[in-house]
């Protein structure tokens, strides 16, 4: 009788052990299907070199007339423009506003697209823009920058007679065009891309380039001016 009780007790203990094992087995099963592993991802940006891009412009002015002293009336002249090293696929600007002013003929066009690049990975999102000449002012060929949409030559806005240290601020504090800086995202390309472009036909940051050229004689003459564009990242 004692053995019967003993065997019954052992059987019960075994049953409890088996149940416990089965329960543990279920836990391990669920754990096996939700295993996870962590790893890190790091991004490091190499600071790029800041660089400026500007195109070159040229004009061809001719008169269809043959007389020696032809009229400076605008309708007697044919003016075309060409652009090289265009920025962001910019095209040659169309000439407009041809007019006679004394012994000069004046005309203007939208300022070409220019830009400063390589400001990614920095805290800078804006720039100012100033211009000065090459120190050898050709008085027969003058250039001025003015607010886009202006219609007349303003001698006070002439830029090619400026020298380094006395640059004409176009965009920026006290500038000819705007007191505001040029901001990435609201610039000519309208994209936040680490490049600050302005001019051309897009965006709010456009300007006009005015030309005043003195025409003399019938011989072919060439005049050139070199402008230095100064971008200051802010």
């Amino acid at each position: 009788m004692t053995s019967l009780i003993k065997n019954t007790a052992l059987l019960s203990i075994n049953a409890i052990l088996v149940a416990t094992l089965l329960w543990q087995h279920d836990v391990e099963w669920s754990q096996a299907w939700s295993s996870a592993s962590d790893y890190t991802l790091s991004v490091d940006c190499v600071e790029p070199t800041v660089v400026a891009f500007v195109p070159s412009l040229s004009y061809s002015i001719s008169s269809p007339g043959t007389q020696r002293n032809y009229s400076l009336a605008a309708n007697n002249l044919v003016i075309s423009s060409d652009i090289t090293n265009a920025i962001n696929s910019d095209t040659a600007p169309s000439i407009s506003g041809m007019a006679a002013s004394g012994n000069h003929v004046t005309f203007h066009h939208r300022g070409p697209l220019v830009k400063i690049g390589g400001v990614q990975c920095s805290s800078s999102t804006s720039a100012s823009f100033a211009v000065y000449g090459d120190g050898a002012d050709d008085t027969q060929f003058n250039l001025a920058m003015e607010t886009s949409g202006s219609n007349s030559w303003q001698a006070s806005n002439q830029v090619d007679n400026r020298v380094a240290g006395n640059a004409a601020v176009i965009f920026g504090a006290g500038g000819l065009i705007s007191s505001a800086a040029i901001n990435d995202g609201s610039d000519a390309d309208t994209i936040v891309n680490g490049e600050i472009a302005f001019g051309g036909t897009q965006g709010a940051a456009t300007y006009d380039l005015f030309n005043s050229i003195q025409l003399m004689g019938t011989n072919t003459t060439n005049h050139s001016e070199t402008l230095t564009y100064v971008f200051t990242v802010q």
Binding site: L41, S42, V43, C45, V46, K115, G118, Q120
Partner: peptide, 9 residues
């Protein structure tokens, strides 16, 4: 994972 970015214009 390390990612290095080099910008240019």
């Amino acid at each position: 994972i390390d990612i290095k970015v080099a910008f240019g214009s």
